Computed example of a mutant assay.
Amino acid sequence: MSAILVTIADAAHPPVRALVEELDAYLVPLYPAESNHLLDIETLRQPEMRFFAAFREDEALAIGGCWLHEDYAEVKRVYVRPAARGLGLAKQIMRRIETEAMACGRLIARLETGIHQPESLALYRRLGYADRGPFGDYPTDDPNSVFMEKMLG
């Protein structure tokens, strides 16, 4: 079996785009439109974004990125293809996101996830993320959102 490489990725690269679209297809039915805070491909390609993918040869298995705000990094679009779950890829992607955030001078990582994603919530808590209130432009009264934060470094 080939090694898995986590690397910077272009969200528009077809195998990476396919994972973004898989994630959309998973999330859209779980939440009402106003609770889905999905960044599109073009936003994921902006200079303030750092986007990563885990590849085995040419196959993208997992994705995730961080949006560099002025004083924190926001974790966005973490997803592992179902067939690749159990390989520790979400942890690898998160480690890469956190390393990049610190390299860019951000010592706080924040994220928003949903109440219907227990696996994601459990992962983030295992990685040291703690619940916090809404941040940025998120609505303050969305019952479907969970906000979390971790001090890096």
Rank of each mutant, 00 (worst) to 15 (best):
I63W: 02
F51V: 01
A84T: 09
A83G: 07
Y124K: 08
D141C: 06
Y138T: 08
E42D: 14
E59Y: 01
P134V: 13
R110F: 01
T7K: 11
S2F: 05
L23Y: 05
F51L: 08
D58P: 02
R132V: 11
E100R: 06
E149W: 07
K76C: 08
V6T: 13
T43I: 14
D24F: 03
D71S: 08
L123W: 08
M151S: 03
L61Q: 06
R125H: 09
L89D: 10
G88A: 03
R106K: 13
E42F: 02
A60R: 00
R96C: 12
V146P: 14
K76M: 10
S120T: 07
A83C: 14
L68N: 06
A25Y: 08
E59K: 10
F147H: 12
H69V: 04
A103D: 14
R126N: 11
P139W: 08
T43V: 12
A11P: 14
S120N: 15
A90T: 03
T99V: 12
M1L: 09
T113W: 01
F147C: 10
Y26G: 01
G105S: 13
P143C: 05
P143S: 08
P32G: 02
A73F: 06
I108C: 09
V75L: 15
L68A: 07
V75N: 12
F51Y: 09
I63S: 00
D141A: 09
P15D: 07
R96P: 08
F51W: 10
A90F: 00
I93T: 10
R56Q: 12
Q117M: 13
I93D: 05
A18D: 05
F135N: 15
A33S: 14
I108D: 07
T7W: 03
D40L: 09
E100T: 14
C104P: 09
L127Y: 09
D10K: 09
L127F: 11
V78R: 02
M94T: 00
A54R: 12
F51E: 06
F135K: 14
G136M: 15
D71N: 13
L27H: 04
A12E: 10
S2C: 09
G128N: 04
D137S: 15
F51Q: 01
V16F: 02
D58R: 05
A25C: 14
R77L: 07
